[in-house]
Design a protein around this nucleic acid. Structure first.
Length: 867
RNA sequence: GCUCACAUAGCUCAGUUGGUUAGAGCGUUGCGUUCACAUCGCAGAGGUCCCUGGUUCAAGUCCAGGUGUGAGCACCA
């Protein structure tokens, strides 16, 4: 009996006698106070629990919410899962850290602030960079505290002493160091590439910031000129001013004779030099089977241009207008130029046809302006360039020293160094990683990490924001060349270059650049961090890195697998030569009950976490996030579901009330060792409970949170409360109540990760005097798991159900005397006579063995399976 | 176009490496206040596990094909 009953030693009857549990659990009266208790205890900081001999470490870096607004229900889902893992591991005695923080979210935040300015009739340009940034920081500061308060409301047991912010001085320093190191290793370069350019925002956009809108367009089929043999088809004739080739499929018999030839043509008054090239990508079925190649304004064409060493001719400028040098078309908007060109082709008899087609238009996700792909001078991370690994441990596992960011990042997941849950997302990851292009990391924004690059003054005349016209004219002829910087002098470094004509790059970094470092930038030593100029030195002097990195689990929504998760893998493998986390757990999207995404633009579909927490309690909200859901799946949520779990927390509470009431009558606890487990029900419940302990731990270790929660829910309500508590009333003796108390306390522990508030509150009445949050996680006693007891009791349950059903059907009055005839097991049934009588509300007089038929109650034969 | 996931009760979904009679919550029908709980209890109704074929002693689970739904990526000149 010892394992489970040891609890009784710390069991304090005195507390219980003085305070009585109120009739119903009212979460909002307790939750804030309980969170304060956890905070004040210091238990969420693993440093304070070091005496517990922690062997394993368990770390989660919480995905930092954008500092733009308030938490939504999606955050609640993530935080709940993270906190379940955290509380479980903390109770297991692991060195456990849940690290909170916020993300400056450059583009999103700047966008929100700019919108506010617009409302006030001003703009960031009118305010100036310094003023604008001050304003934005104030705004962020306000949001950060809202977010932190809401995180607390959700019960996240994170270590606030380690709270981080991506744009803090400390993390900004890390970002600069990372940039410099990568620059020195030739993994960051400045070059001219085709980028997604929004003419309205005057900024580059990342590939994932581009949205697509289906539209109907006109597909024009025409010849460039009369002396050119092929007709081409395009929806954008104006870009054809920049064509330098025509591509055909190498297997297309119609055009094979032209391949390799070069033609000089006069296209609507503009001279073009066109080479006929062969490309497998060209679909002979589409249009005429010949495609005009515009290297400067199409991603696909720029690749062809690179392969075939074609000239790049820019047609459209950053303002979305045709550049100078194109005669009457210059300075026209693209649409105007298109119309004019089509008209001219028609007049010249070159236009063969125009057909309506549907195609996808790329638009800016912020302002929905049409994106212009155009070449621009930007900073990039080279994903295919070789670099040398330094960490012997990684080299040993990986098998060689030389690698590229793409290769090593693919390897990390393929080799199992990083495990993705659910597994099928690994395929998505591979697909994305294999097709990854160099990552454009510069943004023409103000809010963010300023690029730590400084140029000499005399060179600056060539480089000002917005990128000047002069630059446009200095586009090199070949895409993909690493530009030889036209600046006289360039300096990349952590400490600013001041004076001497040095001026810093105007641009900022993609927000994902800083969040890619999140798992370890947050763990770097905070004290006197300014003294570190070198990342290696800083890492070496950061004890938290040794203790907590690689982190254990990255828990986040699957939509940022690429933008964030993949980039953490890339950047961390590079700078630390280790993985950022061992497991990636991806949750799905929270939808309304109709399966629609909850969106801010439709407030009626949104379920607000704080409102739900107030109404039903955070525990109910948390349970509704986890139970009935599995990794990766979207979660349909309704208020009704949350209300259902509120009922559960109340049930749990009321079991406590019952126990409290009963235990009060017991004056003398006596010696625990004397407690005997005698009845079938006793043996059954302890067997069940130990199975439960084993299964819940197994589920939690294997990230099956929904299953673990459902088992706990089911056991608590439908085994413990519905059966064992009812039988305890029958057995009605001290031993039973002491046992039931112990089992209840065990249950509180098992439920604590899922429903931390109600369990902690009940623990106040029943517990050891210390907080439940650090109680030891129960271990299953395998010896107590007995199939026989479970089978036998299952039979009794079924028999009682059969009797109840029979009583109902026959409208039998309580206490009626019945005869039960069974085929076998009559001894067992005789032994359980009292339980059967009380729970079945009958009086059994006779239990007889019969030869035929399964079961007969009161002369009625009943279908019965398990005898 | 490419890739992936999903399809189980009226609704929302669980179902781990194939293994007793396929489960839960909500809803629904009937009964019920026995002193923890009506935020409760008891009982009931409700399923061709999308279709077809295959592997197996055994398939909701594995394989192939089909149908439907959703998602991600690419984007076509």
């Amino acid at each position: 009996m010892s394992g489970v009953l040891n609890l009784l030693f710390s069991f304090n009857l005195g507390i219980m006698k003085d305070m009585e549990l109120p009739k119903a659990y009212i979460p909002k009266e307790y939750e804030d106070k309980i969170y304060k208790k956890w905070e004040n205890s210091g238990y969420c900081n693993p440093d304070n629990l070091e005496t517990r001999g922690q062997a394993r470490s368990f770390t989660i870096s919480m995905p930092p919410p954008n500092a733009t607004g308030v938490l939504h229900i999606g955050h609640t889902l993530g935080m709940t899962i993270q906190d379940i893992m955290t509380r479980y591991h903390r109770m297991r005695g692991d060195k456990t850290l849940l690290l909170p923080g916020t993300d400056h979210a450059a583009i999103a935040t700047q966008n929100v602030v700019e919108k506010m300015l617009r409302k006030e009739g001003t703009s960031r340009h009118r305010l100036g960079r310094k003023k604008f940034l001050e304003l934005t920081e104030n705004y962020v500061e306000k949001n950060k505290s809202t977010i932190n308060n809401q995180t607390k409301k959700m019960g996240a047991s994170c270590d606030w002493s380690r709270e981080a912010y991506t744009l803090s001085d400390k993390l900004s320093r890390v970002v600069s160091m990372q940039f410099k190191q990568m620059y020195d290793d030739d993994l960051i370069y400045r070059g001219t590439r085709i980028v997604n350019w929004c003419p309205r925002c005057c900024s580059t956009l990342a590939d994932d910031e581009v949205e697509y809108k289906e539209q109907s367009a006109k597909l024009y089929t025409f010849k460039y000129s009369n002396d050119f043999p092929l007709a081409i088809a395009t929806t954008r004739p104006e870009t054809k001013l920049g064509d330098t080739a025509v591509a055909v499929n190498p297997h297309d018999k119609r055009y094979q004779k032209y391949i390799g030839k070069t033609y000089q043509v006069d296209f609507v008054g503009v001279p073009l030099k066109l080479k006929i090239i062969a490309e497998n990508e060209v679909n002979p079925e589409f249009g005429t089977g010949a495609a005009g190649v515009t290297p400067a304004h199409s991603f696909a064409d720029s690749l062809m241009a690179e392969k075939n060493n074609l000239a790049v001719k820019k047609v459209i400028g950053q303002d979305g207008k045709i550049l100078a040098g194109f005669g009457k078309y210059s300075n026209l908007k693209t649409k105007e130029a298109r119309e004019k060109i089509v008209e001219e082709l028609e007049n010249d008899g070159l236009l063969e046809s125009q057909n309506d087609i549907k195609n996808n238009l790329s638009i800016c996700y912020r302002c929905h302006t049409e994106i212009e792909p155009l070449p621009s001078l930007q900073w990039f991370v080279a994903v295919n360039k070789e670099f040398t690994l330094k960490n012997p441990a990684l080299i040993k596992k990986y098998g060689k020293k030389e690698t590229t960011l793409k290769e090593i990042s693919l390897w990390a997941v393929k080799s199992g160094e990083i495990k993705i849950i659910p597994e099928y997302f690994a395929k998505t990851y591979f697909h994305w990683m294999e097709n990854l292009r160099d990552w454009c990391i510069s943004r023409q924004l103000w809010f963010g990490h300023r690029i730590p690059v400084y140029y000499r003054k005399q060179a600056i005349s060539n480089f000002q924001f917005p990128i000047s016209k002069q630059i446009q004219n200095s586009i090199p002829d070949r895409i993909g060349d690493k530009i030889q910087n036209s600046m006289d002098d360039i300096y990349v470094g952590v400490t600013p270059k001041k004076g001497g004509g040095w001026v810093q790059d105007e641009d900022t970094l993609d927000t994902w650049f800083s969040s890619a470092l999140w798992t370890w930038s947050t763990l770097l030593e905070k004290k006197n961090f300014e003294k570190f100029n070198d990342l290696k030195e800083w890492l070496k002097n950061s004890p938290d890195i040794k203790k907590f990195h690689p982190t254990s689990v990255m828990e986040t929504m699957h939509d940022i697998l690429f933008f964030w998760v993949a980039r953490m893998i890339i950047m961390t493998l590079y700078s630390l030569n280790e993985v950022p986390f061992k497991t990636v757990y991806l949750h799905g999207m929270v939808c309304d009950k109709h399966g629609k995404k909850m969106s801010k633009s439709h407030p009626e579909t949104c379920i607000e976490p704080i409102e739900m927490s107030q109404k039903y309690g955070t525990d109910a909200l948390r349970l509704s996030m986890v139970l009935g859901n599995a990794a990766g799946n979207s979660l349909r949520l309704s208020e009704q579901k949350i209300a259902g779990f509120r009922n559960f927390t109340n049930k749990l509470w009321n079991i406590g009330r019952f126990i409290q009431m009963k235990i009060k009558d017991i004056k003398d606890i006596g010696d625990i060792k004397d407690i005997q487990l005698e009845t079938l029900a006793d043996k059954w419940i302890i067997s069940k409970l130990n199975s439960l302990i084993r299964e819940v731990a197994d589920d939690l270790e294997n990230f099956r949170f929904g299953l673990a929660g459902e088992k706990l829910y089911d056991f608590t309500w439908h085994e413990f409360a519905d059966w064992y508590v009812e039988i305890a009333k029958i057995q009605n003796n001290k031993n039973t109540y002491l046992l039931i108390t112990n089992y209840y306390l065990l249950l509180l522990k098992l439920l604590h990760p899922f429903a931390p508030f109600v369990t902690e509150k009940i623990w106040e009445y029943f517990g050891s005097g210390d907080l439940l949050i650090i109680e030891k996680w129960p271990e299953a006693d395998e010896k107590k798991i007995t199939d026989q007891a479970e089978q036998d009791f299952k039979l009794i349950k079924e028999l009682i159900s059969a009797i109840r059903s029979w009583r109902k059907e026959k409208a039998v009055q309580p206490k009626e005397i019945i005869k039960i005839k069974v085929a076998g097991r009559e001894e067992l049934i005789k032994n359980q006579k009292e339980v059967i009588n009380r729970l079945g509300r009958v009086e059994t007089e006779e239990v007889k063995n019969i030869d035929k038929g399964d079961l007969e109650i009161g002369g009625v034969k009943i279908k019965f399976g398990n005898l």
